[in-house]
Amino acid sequence: MKAVTWQGKRDVRVEQVPDPTIQHDTDAIIEVTASGLCGSDLHLYEVLGPFMTPGDILGHEPMGRVVETGSGVTNLSVGDRVVVPFQIACGSCWMCSRDLQTQCETTQNREHGMGASLFGYSSLYGAVPGGQAELLRVPHADYGPIKIESDLDDEHFVYLSDVMPTAFQALEYAQVGEGDTLLVIGLGPIGDMAARLALHRGVRVIGADLVPERLARTAARGAETYDVTKVDVAEIVREATAGRGADGVIDAVGMEAHGSPVAQAGQTAVGFLPDFLARKAMTTVSVDRLGAFHIAVDAVRRGGTISLSGVYAGTVDPIPMQTLFDKQVTLKMGQANVKRWETQVKPLAEDSSDPLGLADFATHRVPLDQAPEVYKNFQDKADNTVKVLFKP
């Protein structure tokens, strides 16, 4: 089969690789019909290379049709249309029973001190082959896959794998309701979707980014948007909220934030180290650029909440603890627990009126062969690349 493979920093290639096979009785094999390119994939492309092996298959936002099941999979049949959550969870352990699927104790990667395994996301998360491929083996298919019985096309549902539940959890964690003010920092796929969900709820949304096309795209949905390179976003938010600040802030950027030359230099330096030293450096030194997080701390009101959905990697990055304490700020964060939010987000995808604009959420729809080009464009924020769907 064809698959998008990691070969080195900023080097992805489409190769012929062996077809996946059933390895456990709770496995299924799906023929992938759509698979997203996620902002988190850029962390592998650029920063987390020390945890990758040449040939690793990328991608964690797939959907498709079941072509084979193990004997323990009784909830799916060949031909079923399914979306596959990006994390792999068993559904029955202590963590899963508490709707913390990203902490699944069955697939947890204890040797690295990390949570549940993820598709296509480095040795830190199990080195499981990903979904930017023609076929995908789905472990724990007796629990994970979300069955789709609607006649609407893939683009209404593929975002259930990651984008919609991640954005929904970010919004839930921000603890805002109708009439409240939410600041969303970073208007890539997750920030854009979080803004759409918040507007759908009647929340006032202020969005911040530095890419004109992303700002315009979110503004067209009804948000107030600002270019972080041209204005003091925190001051704008205070002016719009009687001096208080935002009730909630979503940082949808994470480690890729601009604004810290020192951390950027650190990321670059790590790239020159041998892998065994680079892995140590990545997990013990400052490699994050905290520009977005500092805006969040400045902009949130006293007693407000900051919700982190962007991925951070460093462990000794300085953060303004005095300010966070003095402002009595709540921090909530983590990978989205997809199955926890399934019943809330799936009806929005099934709604034929398309309240979130899912049908045109993707900016690019490409075959797998174009992966090297679209990865580069996404990283460089070129060609209006906001959301890419691969159509194997």
Rank of each mutant, 00 (worst) to 15 (best):
T5N: 11
W6Y: 15
K9E: 15
R13P: 04
R13Y: 06
Q16I: 14
P18G: 07
D19A: 15
D25W: 15
D25A: 10
D27E: 00
A28T: 01
I30H: 01
E31L: 04
E31P: 04
A34L: 09
S35H: 07
G36P: 11
G39Q: 04
S40E: 06
Y45P: 07
I57E: 02
P62S: 01
S71P: 14
N75S: 07
V82L: 02
P85M: 05
F86W: 06
I88Q: 01
Q103I: 03
N109S: 14
G115K: 00
A127C: 11
Q132A: 06
E134P: 03
L136Q: 07
L136G: 01
Y143F: 13
K147L: 08
V158N: 05
Y159H: 12
L160M: 07
V163A: 10
A174M: 04
A174F: 01
A174Q: 02
L183W: 07
I190M: 03
M193W: 03
M193H: 00
A198I: 04
V203H: 02
V203F: 06
R204M: 05
I206E: 04
A208S: 12
A216Q: 15
V233P: 07
A234P: 05
M255G: 13
S260D: 15
G266M: 14
D288S: 01
D298E: 12
R301V: 06
G303H: 00
L308Y: 07
S309G: 07
G314E: 08
P320V: 03
P320Q: 08
Q322T: 11
L324V: 09
D326F: 15
A336F: 09
E342M: 08
T343M: 13
P347F: 01
L348D: 00
D354C: 06
F361L: 12
T363D: 02
H364P: 06
E373S: 12
K376Y: 14
P392K: 13
